[in-house]
Simulated scan of single mutants.
Amino acid sequence: MKHYWQLIRDHLGWSLGPERQLEEHLRAAIHWLLRAQEATPDDGVAHSYDLRRRRWHASYPETTGYIIPTLIDYAELFDAPECLIAAVRMADWEIAVQLPDGGVRAGTMDAEVVVPTVFNTGQVLFGFARAYVATREPRFATALRLASDWLVDAQDADGSWRRFPSPFAPGSDVKAYNTRSAFGLVRAWQALGETRWLRAADANAAWALSTALPNGFLPHNCLTANPAPLTHTLAYAMRGLMEVGVATDNSRYLDHAIRMAEAIALGQRADGAVPGRYDTNWQPAATWTCLTGNSQLAINWLRLGRITGERRFEQYALAANRFNMRAQDLDQRDANRAGALKGSHPIDGDYLMWRYPNWATKFFADGLMLQLRPDVDNLG
């Protein structure tokens, strides 16, 4: 019955608590990520906690990969060596489960289908790169090189990735949010200096831009065939474009990310939440909010301020962070949920219904760190 009680509280507004100090919200989020690692029989991070079934789902290589930078950033910025230890364990686990050809498997570790997929491989690049930069251990460089080369070899001549789509993300085989994988190649290039990886990232960003509608909307940008993508995947695509733009000094990519940021900001609600989906005319297409997307957009808006020196997006970022801080239950006595964020608010929204996915809390932590540390240019 716990999930029904959470549903009632969400719909009545009772689950939105007061804001506390940002450090308290951040600390609780980091502790939950460590809890999600402890909840598995290996060193990966559990995909999510399922409130309705009251169980943790198996480790998820994709998002464990980009949780590694979050924990290392927190360890370095807030003197938390236990987070570095946990992140290195995650990175070693990623090496152990990396497929022989260098790719990273789709889905969780208990998925019946074991195939490499482009997006998951791109996300694990973040972990290998950050682990290598933090430790200078050659094993992380070796794994990073193997995965990056696999990703480049899988790329089509026009810069898109059509081969190795995820069997768990139906719809078009091409996904605009793969610019997030291109961003992973940027991180690999920054770590090891292989220019072919940066060229591949540039090619993918150029392809994505070539598909844009006149109003800047990117089609084929949702996890399913839904023409109204999630803010989660919109934010993936936006961040990928801006980061590839910075790395290649290509203002076209950055300008497009700014167009997306402006269009989405127009739909932000007075309470700071952003509608969970947008249609092709940039109109809100959901009454619920995707908490993951809120945090990702906060990161993007703050990051645009760092890149451009302008502060016009800061108000949207702070409002989105405030809403998610209110949605994070710091008084929750259930250790499986304390400090975590739901997939959707209310919890019966159509993104990760009834679940607390690890990446929602990961991006929440990143957004709070960027807000807390204006001296930090980039992270994650």
Rank of each mutant, 00 (worst) to 15 (best):
A111C: 12
A106M: 09
V114Y: 13
G122D: 06
Q123I: 03
F126V: 09
L144A: 11
F140I: 08
G127A: 09
A143N: 03
L144Y: 02
L99G: 09
V124M: 05
V114L: 09
P100W: 10
V115W: 04
S148E: 04
M109I: 10
F140L: 04
P116G: 11
D149N: 13
V97Y: 02
G103T: 09
R130H: 05
F140Q: 00
G107F: 03
Q98R: 15
W150T: 06
T135R: 14
L151S: 04
N120M: 04
D101A: 14
V115Y: 00
V118L: 06
S148Y: 00
R145N: 02
E112D: 14
T108F: 00
V118Q: 02
D101G: 14
G127P: 03
L144E: 01
S148L: 00
M109C: 07
V133H: 12
A147R: 07
F119E: 03
A143F: 05
G127S: 05
G102I: 14
V115P: 10
R105Y: 06
A143M: 04
T142W: 09
A131K: 05
A131E: 05
A141F: 06
V133Q: 15
V97L: 08
F119H: 03
A129S: 12
A131L: 08
T108S: 15
V97N: 01
P138F: 07
G103H: 12
V97A: 04
A147W: 05
V113R: 15
L146N: 06
S148Q: 02
V133E: 15
G127Y: 08
V113A: 13
L151V: 11
V97C: 03
